[in-house]
């Protein structure tokens, strides 16, 4: 074990960190440290010995933080727009390691979810390697390409020590496949959804969102709970926009984690979106002993 939070504390430069978004990057990288600590073998899948991964990616974090904003005008010219662009560039810069960390977290969280789902349905599920992206709140509705196709969305606000929003979305075809597994029958159209149908899918969303949240909660030590889920069957972008609006009322960041869950007979795919608050990210940060982050 070559890293303890205190060592991060010592190295962390405080002057260059721009307000807002870049928190996400730092959080995304630091939060899963306990993942490594408790579940070392997982890192072998990345093809690197655990210690080396840790050393390298901490180095990456420090490097990125030290570089700070590329120029003052990056932040002053167009307000939030530039912040966001900057965040995206920065995220992209982090490259494979930063992404791997988020993916790994998603892997564990959603892996648990898949297991629960299998227990619930009695079917065997497989999960693809999650893809993770950060994006600007206003771009959130376009995540599925400004789609008007009906999707099923299960949305849950996060409460507890920090707040946030998360949602699991699946296409209408995927939802029908799930209904057939759970209830042996599926409603023909969104208008035919019975109370039973709705509650079955809400439960699935509850399990998927809840498992993911539990995973992050355990790893970061920040107590987060899911509020009762709500569901909708509507245009993809209308649901994502609604979520973005709920989150826009306070300062939030958007991370989308997309993963496919497969069943042997009828494949369906879903994706998962999480919008943490800046304060929440900050809190996770502090839990790692990085006081200057606040």
């Amino acid at each position: 074990m070559c890293l303890i939070p205190e060592s991060v504390h010592t190295f962390l430069p405080t002057n260059h960190r721009p307000e807002g978004e870049p928190f996400l990057v730092v959080w995304a990288i630091l939060a899963p440290l306990p993942v490594f600590r408790f579940r070392g073998p997982i890192w072998h899948r990345l093809g690197l010995p655990a210690c080396e991964v840790t050393g390298k990616f901490v180095e990456q974090v420090l490097l990125r933080l030290e570089q700070g904003p590329r120029s003052e005008s990056d932040f002053e010219s167009e307000g939030n727009g530039s912040h966001r662009r900057f965040m995206r560039e920065r995220y992209a810069e982090l490259g494979p390691i930063g992404q791997s960390v988020i993916k790994e977290m998603a892997n564990i969280g959603l892996g648990n979810a898949t297991t629960s789902l299998a227990e619930m349905t009695g079917h065997c599920f497989e999960m693809s390697v999650p893809e993770a992206t950060t994006l600007a709140m206003e771009d959130l509705p376009n995540l599925a390409g400004a789609s008007e196709d009906p999707f099923v969305g299960i949305y849950m606000p996060i409460s507890g020590e920090t707040t946030g929003h998360m949602g699991f979305f699946l296409s209408w075809d995927s939802a029908q496949a799930l209904w057939k597994m759970l209830l042996n029958a599926a409603p023909e159209t969104p208008d035919d959804i019975s109370e039973m149908d709705a509650s079955a899918l809400i439960e699935v969303g509850n399990i998927i969102n809840g498992s993911f949240l539990r995973a992050i909660s355990e790893f970061s030590g920040v107590n987060m709970m899911a509020s009762p889920p709500v569901m909708s069957v509507d245009m993809m972008s209308a649901m994502l926009a609604t979520m973005a609006i709920e989150a826009s009322q306070t300062h939030h960041l958007a991370i989308s984690i997309r993963t496919e869950i497969f069943d042997k007979s009828s494949s369906f795919s879903g994706f998962f979106v999480m919008l943490p608050t800046i304060e929440g990210v900050d809190m996770i940060f502090r839990n790692f002993g990085i006081a200057e982050a606040s």
């Binding site: 969305g153 949305y155 606000p157 959804i193 709705a198 509650s199 809400i202 509020s227 009762p228 889920p229 709500v230 569901m231 909708s232 069957v233 509507d234 209308a238 649901m239 609604t242 609006i245 709920e246 009322q249």
Partner: peptide, 18 residues
Amino acid sequence: GAQVFKFGTPGTAPKMDI
């Protein structure tokens, strides 16, 4: 101005009156 998320537990669902 719709309330898109309509299915849920009445009373316990978040107040989404935006």
